[in-house]
Design a protein around this nucleic acid. Sequence first.
DNA 1: CAAGCGTGTTACGATCTCGTCGCATAGGAG
DNA 2: CTCCTATGCGACGAGATCGTAACACGCTTG
Lengths: 234, 234
Amino acid sequence: MSKILVVDDESDIVDLVSLHLQREGHEVESVDNGLAVLPMAVKTSPDLIVLDLMLPGIDGVQVHRRLRADTRTRHIPVIMLTARAQTNDRIAGLEGGADDYLTKPFSPRELMLRIGAVLRRTQKVVMLAEQRIGDFLLDRRNMSLSICGKLVELTITELKLMTTLMANPDVIHSRSELLSAVWGYADDTHSRTLDTHIKRLRDKLGDHGRHIGTLRRQGYLFQSVVQEEETADA
Amino acid sequence: MSKILVVDDESDIVDLVSLHLQREGHEVESVDNGLAVLPMAVKTSPDLIVLDLMLPGIDGVQVHRRLRADTRTRHIPVIMLTARAQTNDRIAGLEGGADDYLTKPFSPRELMLRIGAVLRRTQKVVMLAEQRIGDFLLDRRNMSLSICGKLVELTITELKLMTTLMANPDVIHSRSELLSAVWGYADDTHSRTLDTHIKRLRDKLGDHGRHIGTLRRQGYLFQSVVQEEETADA
DNA sequence: CAAGCGTGTTACGATCTCGTCGCATAGGAG
DNA sequence: CTCCTATGCGACGAGATCGTAACACGCTTG
């Protein structure tokens, strides 16, 4: 179902958690070394990371920070495992953007429930090689978009932007969401960069029924349905 | 910001939690008797319930079950407070639909964080949901309202206002309530701002059976039923 | 080095949103 | 009926928000 990266130095825990996860149909990767987390996360790009805060050598909070700092792992939800006493770390974890945490000792069943909740919460977007909405066919391999058979080449930035928009058509993607998805984390509120790329995309898309709509103060969306214009009479 | 119902028999905890919640701008109601929770929840319809599992007389899990069984309280998220030992109850709580839980003793700060998380989470769910009353379909995702299939785009302010009105149709929303819900706290008694936005909404709604009614000196309401004459008797 | 391309930034104008004002109007009390 | 108050409503302007063109910078290619 989902791929989950378990980070813990105690092999007992890893085995136990892995067993339960696999029993629910999840795919499991594991790491016992804090320094190896980021590379492994980049390599396997899991849907969720279960991270023990108490790791030998490097602090779990540090690991978490690194995960958050890297564009490639920033979006991955993290569930933290903390010892009972580490209240400060727990709070730091939640504030730092952890999606949930659990105090040890915990029951596997409880962890499963929390994992299920987090996975449900974070709507996972599956990246397919091709994405089709009506006449729009986005081909990530060729970095191109064919509209009614006509081929339009996209740059890498435009591709990312279009991918994000088409992943959830008819859904508002806020500026910060788009900035985060395409450029990595940024709340660059007063920059016209996003607008500029939206315009460049719009220019390339041409004037068809489906287009990129603006919702003021909310964001942009790719409209899968042709909206009726009120310019019926000439 | 939000209305929160705190259920606990220990007045110390209630006071502490209330204090912190109010400091963050939340409105707080409290109950110390498990049997009174459901009526109170129905009456005040809070955005969130903080429920102690250990209550005199009635089991907290039972209370939770009753809340879930009632249509009027079913959607309200619940954060449970449990003693450390009650692991079974904790799991029962999560499985039963509690949105989160916290083991006593807890730090107020931690509770605040969890409350914030749950509110953010449920708010997102609400944002994704559509609200339908008769032919009126309020789509929060697209900031639009479709009436008999016709799509009307709303601004942020109009959306908030319409959301508040449609959340409880046929219920009078006082001026101060609407001002508070849409603009944040305000006792702007002699301003025409609210009227103006009500008018703008009315214009966009068009002339259908359902409309926004005025109750002089009392407030506004969204009428779910076509009303020919006002025969309000007291 | 020159040319082309992708990208981010800046500047500026266009458009939209929203609160306020002034006055019109309606509805109830006496 | 008259008066008084609450609400309805059009218009206006400040500020927010967005679209667009032009430019600057870095990188690659020849």
